[in-house]
Amino acid sequence: MTQAGSDYAWPHRDLLGLEDLSAQDIRFLLTTAHGFEDVSTRSIKKVPALRGRVVVNLFFEDSTRTRSSFTLAASRLSADTLELTGKGSSVSKGETLTDTARNIEAMGVDLIVCRHSHSGAAKHLAHAVNCSVINAGDGQHEHPTQGLLDIYTLCKRWDLMDTMDLTGKSVAIVGDIAHSRVARSNIHGLLKLGAKVILVGPPTLCPRTFESLGCEVSHNLDDVLPRIDAINMLRIQFERMTSQFFPSVREYAKIFGLTGKRITKAKPELLVMHPGPINRGVELDAAVADGPQSTILEQVTHGLAVRMAGMFLCLNRQSNPTS
């Protein structure tokens, strides 16, 4: 695991998106995560790497699993954690995101983990404070730790942890691409490591503009299935749908759902991913979600290691920041 080079040093104060990272940054972070992975398997699940540091989880949107994952990751590194639930900034008078962040920072915080419903909110917050910021999802923009844990899962399954070079691999992302921060982070990261990315969904959720990011866009899952090595089935986020993007759930599930029958068209070694929580019977049927090709629970496990690595690196970056 020397791909990062001996003179390499993690340069970023913040982890806001995979668009901002180089391939080298991504590989270094995932290598670091690999080193942390076995902490979770020890009887004493703790290392002192961030002892005395304070991590604040500042979540403006409901979240159970991402928040828990960050909290656990921080405690495994011996950091003190504080859980805050923000009310999003209002257009009318009220505390702005900037003010909220500065108030939290004034308590002597080292790292803010932020989730917010507005695209760009994490960058906005990072601009306002001097401590580190990790983006736990900003609107429809990025969710970098999810993208990283997805890539980590692929590298492990494909036994590519030594090179993390995904050249020759094709990954499909299926579903509501337009509104998905998970898709955007995956796209940036996968492309940087050399993979081909194919986006699949109805044109209302998977528009051609994504070709500008370097992806292939398709509206036909059956055409795509035989030529991919992994498929990431995004959750249909009914709560984010502001208007009708497809006629019915029944129709969507029939055309874009991954069923036990449909998956027979794919390579037998196809990996099936899902960021959770699953709408069973919509994106995935039970046979696929619980089958041997599914990586869904590994993704959750790897999320801890990746988040530990992100926190550790941002709080221990070398001076002369570029972030």
């Binding site: 668009e19 695209s119 760009g120 900003d138 609107g139 429809q140 923009h141 990025e142 337009a178 921060r181 955007r184 528009p207 503009t209 994504f210 500008s212 990011l213």
Partner: peptide
């Protein structure tokens, strides 16, 4: 503006 940049920024 609707276009590649809005797509990338998630706006």
């Amino acid at each position: 503006n609707a276009g590649p940049l809005a797509t990338k920024l998630g706006l």
